[in-house]
Design a protein around this nucleic acid. Structure first.
Lengths: 347, 347
DNA sequence: CTGTTAGCGCATTCAC
DNA sequence: GTGAATGCGCTAACAG
């Protein structure tokens, strides 16, 4: 007799449960899925058999017939992007509460794996798809449209959505920050920004608003050129890139008095570099970030930033997918989750 | 004629492809799965039918027969824990390269959802399970053992693993940090630590080594009491909690000259609080973190910490699961990924 | 190289 | 309230 536990080689099936409870297959199924239509006695016998066998329903098999997988695909550019984390966490939690699981995939910031990932996901027949960001490649958009399942794009409000959209206007965020720095009396502003799509929208909103505020005539809506000093860093941005960005800005543009950063991580780096050079913040240099990361309120001095409802985006996206799966028509729904400039000590 | 694209209501099946290509079902299947056993001509006809119908194989249906889902379950305490992010990212990438997808779930730091999550995952019949951390509850351990699939626990080396293990010794990490601070000439050390399992192991390793080094006799291996000043913070730790921890330590224990922190986020907070009080780092206070986060090399002054192969853990875990699914026996494998104290400027 | 048969484990549809 | 038959979409096993 072996000392290691000896479990049955094959997992118990509903068939095993039914036989042990001496009922038919379908009665066992009903006892578990719709208990109220089964007599109490039968229900108890089935439950006993379930406990005895350690039966766990095979959702794959059931889903084949009912065409429901109770799986939702989640697409992120890269998992190690702090900004999306609360969204993914809320998504996971909200879905789990409704019996769904999240299947997570990385598209890559360059969209290189987007189409392949969408195909791989569709092959698993998810009941819905949530994307942090927009679906960029035409092939992926077509695939998703043809799949006939609810799709929620998030963290954006622009463009023409594939189906549903939960986010906010990045251009409005940029404009609000410009207004804030202007109101603080800054006139020689610079930008440190990641090179991703959403950061570019914020930068454009910032520049256009700035030109309007300062009455400059050479407003540039061209994405490749800029009227203001800009340091670009590769996405995803971090503290180290922020330091490097400020080094670059100060070297090329003496006398700047404020920096808008496309993420709080970047802003924290700019703050750090400023301090290492003996610059006073905000007296010599004002700094504004984006995202209201968990550390933003606790830097020294505390970081002015833009608060985003990252958790709410995940929750709303999950709710929309679930509602649609339950038969409610949410097609085309667009939710603006808004934003708020949070002034702290760096401006 | 409607202006919106009108896709077939039902997704194409292999049946549709076979009929269009005028071959049998199984031939169509083989043309896609094992092309080399099918004539070139047939293969081309099938491929043409696939393109025409936009067919995407239903892996759920195939998996029912072949007992392979090509899905691996990933269990994390909470997604928003920066420490595990590189592991999860590497896991996802390595699995995707081999045709697997990651199904992600959150157990909660208190293990409250661990059993329910394991049951939900098992119901989807994953080909393997990777856990960041150990499986703590007995019920979950039993379920996983009975499922008969490869399980990799990670980020630890202690205890008795369910199956496979990829990690490092947290007690050895604690001891190494104690040695480092001792070598730096510090004698009045304190600890700022999260209240999770792994952080507790590091603290114990630290304290035991410290007692040995300083020749103190009241070494306490008791988890609830401590011979050194300790500030506990709830997991997951962050910068704000680090500031609060230093406030608490300085209030209760005047004259400490070094703080070991259970995460770099915590250490960054301690550093920030020290600077806000005009303490010089490392002259007045040495600080050591853990994890070598992306920002650690770029704080001012740069943070001394412990480098962990977070990416390697994810990659190795994925490789072990994949190998086992491919028939290689990796049962019981234990991989020590090691660690390295990285001295920078805060010690 | 290609086809036929028989399920995988369960839910749907109809009968009793 | 319960049950028998049928099939979801695909692949393993065996024939040709």
């Amino acid at each position: 007799m072996p000392s290691t536990p000896n479990y049955p080689a094959r997992a118990a099936t509903l068939h095993d449960v039914a036989r042990l409870a001496d009922v038919s297959l379908i009665t066992a199924s009903r006892a578990l899925r719709t208990p109220h239509v089964v007599s109490e006695k039968t229900r108890a016998r089935v439950q006993q058999a379930v406990d005895a066998t350690g039966y766990i329903p095979n959702l794959l098999a059931g889903g084949l017939k009912s065409r429901r997988s109770f799986v939702v695909a989640g697409l992120v550019p890269e998992i190690s992007v702090a900004q999306f984390l609360p969204t993914v966490a809320a998504l996971t939690t909200t879905l789990a509460q409704a019996g769904y699981q999240l299947m997570l995939g990385q598209t890559g910031y360059d969209h290189g794996r987007e189409e392949a990932l969408v195909n791989a996901m569709i092959g698993r027949r998810p009941d819905g798809v949530v994307v942090t960001g927009l679906v960029h490649t035409a092939a992926a958009r077509t695939r998703l449209a043809r799949a006939g399942i609810p799709v929620v794009e998030t963290w954006d409000l622009s463009g023409d959505p594939l189906d549903m959209l939960v986010g906010f206007s990045h251009e409005a965020v940029g404009a609000a920050i410009a207004q804030h720095l202007y109101d603080c009396g800054r006139r020689r502003v610079a930008i440190a920004t990641g090179n991703d799509h959403r950061a570019a929208l914020r930068r454009r909103g910032f520049e256009q608003a700035w030109m309007r505020l300062t009455g400059a005539s050479n407003a540039s809506s061209n994405a490749s050129s800029s009227a203001l000093p800009v340091a670009w860093v590769p996405a995803p941005s971090n503290l180290g890139l922020g330091r490097r960005a400020l080094v670059e800005l100060l070297a090329r543009h003496a006398g700047i008095d404020a920096v808008y950063c496309s993420s709080d991580q970047l802003a924290h780096g700019v703050l750090t570099e400023a301090q290492s050079r003996g610059l006073r913040v905000p007296e010599d240099l004002a700094i504004c970030g984006f995202g209201d990361a968990d550390f933003a309120a606790h830097t020294y001095p505390a970081l002015t930033t833009v608060q985003i409802d990252s958790v709410g985006i995940g929750r709303r996206a999950a709710e929309l997918v679930i509602a649609r799966c339950d038969g409610t028509n949410t097609r085309g729904t667009v939710v603006d989750t808004g934003f708020r400039v949070v002034q702290r000590e760096t401006t």
